[in-house]
Nucleic acid binder design. Structure first.
Lengths: 151, 151
DNA sequence: TATTGTTATACTCTATAACTATA
DNA sequence: TATAGTTATAGAGTATAACAATA
C-alpha cells in the first residue's frame, strides 16, 4: 500500500469514529430527553434558558436563525415550559421558563448527569485525555467557520 | 455547584467538542472534494467503488437506502465518473468507475491523505490515543443501533 | 434606517411506498 | 414469491426573504 493510501485510511478511520461518536452522543441525548417527551432541539433550548432570554440571544446560543427560534418558542409554549414576556424594548420578547419549565430543565440536566454515555462509557481520566485532542482538532475554527473552502 | 450540575457540564463539554470535531471533519472533506467539483456524498461513493459494485451493495456500504443510491448513480453518471453495467443476474446493475472516475478516486484519496485536518492537526501519537477513546464511546453499537430508546 | 420577532417559503438530506423487470 | 433498481413523494431540520412593530 502506498503512503498516500495509508494516510487516507488513517484519516478515514478517525473520521468514521468521530462521526460515529458524535451521532452516538446525539442519539444518547435524544433518548434521555425523549423520556421527558421532549425533542432534542426543545431540550437544548430549555437547557440554554438559565434565565429569561431574548429570542435573538437564544438564536445566538443555539447557533441558528431567529426564525427557527420562533418555532422552538412555539413548541415550548405549547408544552407550558416557557412564556413569552415583553421586554422593556418592546420589540423584544424574553423567553422565561415557567415553574414546569424549570422542573423539566432540572430533569434534563439530571438525566444527562446520571445516564449519559459520555460519562458512563468514559472514565474521568479518559475524558481528560479526550478533550484536548478534540480541541486540537477544532482549533482555528471560531463559532462560524470563517473560510472553510480556503483552509 | 451540585455534583449533578458538574456531571452535566462535563457531558455537555465533551458532547460539544465531539459534535464540533465531527462537523469539522465533514466540512474538511467537503472542502477537499469541493475542489474536484464533487459534493461529499458523491465523493464518498466514488471512494467506496474500489471495483464494480451492485447498487444494492453500495447502499450497504454507504449505510443508506437503495433509492438514495439511484440519485448518487445518476450524479456520478452525469459527471462521467461511473457506468451502469448489467450484471449476469439481469436485475442487477453494477456501478463501474470510468477511467475518469478512477482518476477522480485517486485524487480524492490523495487530497485527503495530503490535506485532511485529521492528519495535519493531530500527530500520529495523538491519533493513536484518540482512536481507542472514540471506540470506547461507540462500543455496544452495531452498524444500526439496535434499540436506541432503551439504552 | 436598523432591529425584533413572525410568516411563508424553500432547500438539503434521506427515507418510505409503490412500481417494473427480472429471478 | 422475493429481490434490484426506479420513481414519486414525504418528512426532518434548517435557512432565506419579506413583513409589521418598534427603536
Amino acid at each position: 500500500m502506498t503512503s498516500a493510501a495509508e494516510g487516507f485510511d488513517q484519516a478515514r478511520r478517525v473520521a468514521q469514529l468521530l462521526i460515529g461518536a458524535a451521532e452516538c452522543a446525539k442519539a444518547d441525548f435524544a433518548a434521555i430527553v425523549g423520556e421527558l417527551d421532549l425533542p432534542p432541539n426543545l431540550a437544548r433550548a430549555v437547557v440554554a434558558l438559565d434565565e429569561p432570554t431574548p429570542m435573538r440571544d437564544l438564536a445566538d446560543r443555539l447557533v441558528c436563525d431567529r426564525s427557527y427560534v420562533t418555532g422552538i418558542a412555539d413548541g415550548l409554549e405549547q408544552r407550558g415550559l416557557v412564556e413569552r414576556v415583553p421586554g422593556v424594548d418592546r420589540r423584544i420578547k424574553l423567553l422565561s421558563l415557567t415553574a414546569r419549565g424549570r422542573d423539566v430543565r432540572e430533569r434534563v440536566m439530571a438525566g444527562v448527569a446520571g445516564g449519559s454515555v459520555l460519562l458512563t462509557r468514559l472514565t474521568p481520566e479518559q475524558r481528560a485525555t479526550l478533550e484536548p485532542l478534540l480541541e486540537a482538532l477544532v482549533q482555528g475554527q471560531r463559532t462560524a467557520l470563517p473560510d472553510a473552502a480556503a483552509s
